[in-house]
Amino acid sequence: MPKAVRDEMHLVSDDEYKERLQELQIELVKLQRHNIANDLKLLVIVEGRDAAGKDGVIKRVVEHLSPRETRVVALGKPTEREKSVWYFQRWVPHLPAAEEFVLFNRSWYNRAGVERVMGFCTDDELEEFCDTVGFFEQMLIRSGVVLIKYYMDISKAEQKHRMKERRRDPLKQWKISPIDAVANKLWTEYSEARNDMLARTHTPASPWNIVKADHKKTARINLISDLLARFDYEGKKPKVIRPNPSVVFSYDPAYVESGLIAP
Results as ranks from 00 to 15, higher is better:
193 A>K: 00
114 V>Y: 05
86 W>P: 02
194 R>Y: 01
185 K>T: 14
111 R>Y: 01
255 Y>G: 11
252 D>T: 07
248 V>E: 03
68 R>W: 08
36 I>M: 10
219 A>W: 00
152 M>D: 13
94 H>W: 12
261 I>A: 04
208 W>R: 06
58 I>N: 10
51 A>I: 04
112 A>F: 00
93 P>E: 09
48 G>E: 05
259 G>W: 03
216 K>W: 06
94 H>Y: 13
205 A>E: 14
154 I>N: 02
64 H>V: 10
221 I>G: 00
45 I>G: 06
234 E>L: 11
175 K>F: 03
187 W>L: 08
128 E>D: 15
39 D>L: 10
16 E>S: 12
186 L>G: 09
3 K>M: 09
128 E>M: 09
16 E>Q: 10
197 M>E: 01
149 K>D: 07
55 D>L: 10
224 I>K: 02
18 K>W: 03
47 E>C: 09
262 A>F: 04
232 D>G: 09
141 I>V: 15
176 I>W: 02
108 W>S: 05
93 P>D: 08
213 A>R: 02
210 I>R: 03
225 S>D: 02
118 M>L: 13
35 N>G: 09
134 G>N: 14
148 I>E: 14
164 K>Y: 11
262 A>S: 15
261 I>S: 07
51 A>W: 00
141 I>P: 03
79 T>D: 07
204 P>H: 07
41 K>G: 05
156 K>M: 13
105 N>T: 07
235 G>F: 03
42 L>N: 14
254 A>G: 04
249 F>D: 06
35 N>F: 13
216 K>E: 11
119 G>D: 03
171 L>K: 12
17 Y>R: 07
89 Q>C: 08
180 D>Y: 01
261 I>K: 00
89 Q>N: 12
170 P>R: 11
60 R>T: 12
138 Q>F: 04
37 A>I: 01
31 L>M: 12
148 I>A: 10
155 S>K: 07
21 L>D: 06
263 P>N: 15
182 V>F: 07
2 P>E: 15
224 I>G: 00
160 K>I: 11
99 E>I: 02
18 K>C: 04
7 D>S: 12
92 V>Y: 07
4 A>C: 06
121 C>E: 12
148 I>P: 07
163 M>H: 13
76 G>E: 03
211 V>Y: 02
3 K>W: 10
190 Y>D: 08
196 D>I: 04
128 E>C: 03
106 R>C: 06
133 V>E: 05
59 K>Y: 00
59 K>N: 15
70 T>W: 00
137 E>W: 05
169 D>Y: 04
150 Y>W: 12
208 W>K: 09
237 K>N: 15
11 L>D: 05
256 V>H: 01
193 A>T: 00
248 V>F: 00
124 D>K: 15
71 R>H: 15
6 R>H: 14
65 L>A: 10
239 K>C: 10
261 I>H: 01
237 K>G: 05
18 K>F: 05
98 A>P: 02
21 L>V: 08
120 F>C: 08
217 K>N: 12
35 N>I: 14
57 V>T: 14
145 V>K: 07
257 E>F: 02
246 S>R: 03
90 R>Q: 11
126 L>V: 11
240 V>Q: 09
139 M>V: 14
150 Y>G: 10
223 L>P: 00
140 L>H: 13
205 A>D: 11
155 S>V: 05
167 R>V: 09
3 K>C: 05
139 M>T: 12
16 E>H: 07
19 E>L: 08
218 T>G: 02
99 E>A: 06
110 N>A: 11
174 W>K: 08
